[in-house]
């Protein structure tokens, strides 16, 4: 598996660290216990195309949003995660 970093180009997997599913969003501060529980502990554990966060610690140290198929490891897109990096990439 190689990931094409939008800032650094194609790099080997060892440069990246995995966080997990990018779909789940942190609940608002006033959210119910059920919502927080769901966010922290429950997983869709997708078999197929999944959107996920990777950190390019061995390169530009940007957080990336990668679309990858968990059945085949095929990567269909890589984009900067929301935040300052995304704005710089768009420039």
């Amino acid at each position: 598996m190689r990931i094409v970093c939008p800032f650094c180009g194609e790099r080997e997997l060892g440069e990246f660290t995995y966080l997990g599913d990018a779909k789940s969003a942190r609940p608002a501060a006033g959210a119910s216990e059920d919502e927080v529980f769901d966010y922290v502990y429950m997983r869709d554990n997708v078999a197929g195309p999944m959107s996920e966060y990777w950190y390019h610690g061995g390169g530009c140290r940007a957080w990336l949003k990668v679309a990858r198929n968990t059945l085949t490891h095929e990567i269909s897109s890589v984009e900067p995660a929301a935040g300052v990096g995304a704005k710089q990439a768009a420039r």
């Binding site: 080997e12 997990g20 968990t70």
Partner: peptide, 16 residues
Amino acid sequence: DGYNSYAQRGNLPVME
């Protein structure tokens, strides 16, 4: 390996 997978195969960084 550290990433979600159902592929029954891994990658080289962990092997190394």
